[in-house]
Amino acid sequence: MHYNQLGKSTIKVSEVSFGCMSLKGSKKENVQLIHQAIEHGINYFDTADLYDAGKNEKVVGEALKGMRHDIVLATKVGNELRADGSGWDWNPRKSYILKAIEKSLKRLQTDFIDFYQLHGGTLEDPIDETIEAFELLKEQGKIREYGISSIRPNVIRQYVEKSNIAGVMMQYSLLDRRPEEVVLDLLGKNQISVLVRGGYAKGLLLDKPAKEYLNWSEKEVGVIKDKVKALCKDTKIQQKVALKYPLDHKAVASVVSGIRTSEQLLSTLEALEVKKEVDAIIQQLKSDLAQNFYETHR
């Protein structure tokens, strides 16, 4: 397992990390799976207070009990659950963030969070106030670093200019090359890391049948899948290509993978063992496939 620096911080994260939202097993199964991931070198675990109304954080906190300082723990804030359970409202205000972190710390059974992220963001937000909250939490020692989870170039630019974010989580894959237009190079230039989600494009780059995705029609996705399949000639190579593609950009520190089973964990780890032909396939796909672009929030 390779480890990459998170932004300008001293934090090192495994190049493949564990997206804990995918945990759906029993308590025993979840704990065993997380421990197995740690044994194989995965050290970055990503959750959010929104996932399963906070229960996901509790699962993660229980699983990581006793090994807190061996891992990098990330969670997110900004979606305030309604008291009646009917949903949630966007709330990036300082007062809410300072209250929400206390609940996350309790659920995660920890005194600090390594990487605390705003779970979204718009230009209408009180961005300066949000940044103040994160900076205060750093001063208090409740978080080590902070960032945002966003695909919006116009919001990302604001945080690059105004804040000390260490990373941005965003969707990026062969089927979603929108970050390649501007955002990846902008973040790389400013030594801000990218944490990739959606690297397999909801499984479309693996074994899921073609369907409409972003600006691609079902037919277009089918054509892309056929092209990938023809070049790879093997499902294991397909997974290697899908995983290696986002990792190829220097700004990307880790691909956050939603792992549900031990089999998925092992296949993901195997996909990291890149064969020589993978680089040539990636270059061919970059050349052959059309690039898509952000149509809004530019």
Rank of each mutant, 00 (worst) to 15 (best):
E62P: 14
M67F: 13
R68W: 06
R68V: 07
H69L: 15
D70R: 11
D70W: 12
I71R: 09
T75S: 06
V77N: 02
G78R: 01
N79H: 13
E80L: 11
E80K: 14
L81F: 14
L81E: 13
L81Y: 13
G85A: 05
P92L: 03
I97H: 01
L98A: 05
I101L: 10
E102I: 08
E102D: 10
L105R: 03
R107Q: 01
R107E: 05
R107I: 06
T110C: 09
F112V: 13
I113V: 08
D114N: 06
Q117R: 04
L118Q: 00
H119Y: 05
H119K: 05
G120H: 00
G120F: 01
G121Y: 03
T122G: 05
L123Q: 06
D125Q: 05
P126G: 02
I127N: 01
T130Q: 07
F134A: 03
E135A: 02
L137M: 06
K138F: 06
E139S: 13
E139G: 15
Q140V: 11
I143R: 02
G147E: 04
I148S: 01
V155E: 04
I156F: 08
Q158P: 14
Y159H: 13
Y159L: 12
S163C: 11
S163V: 11
A166N: 05
G167R: 08
G167S: 09
M169D: 07
M169T: 12
M170E: 02
Q171A: 13
Q171P: 08
S173H: 03
L174S: 06
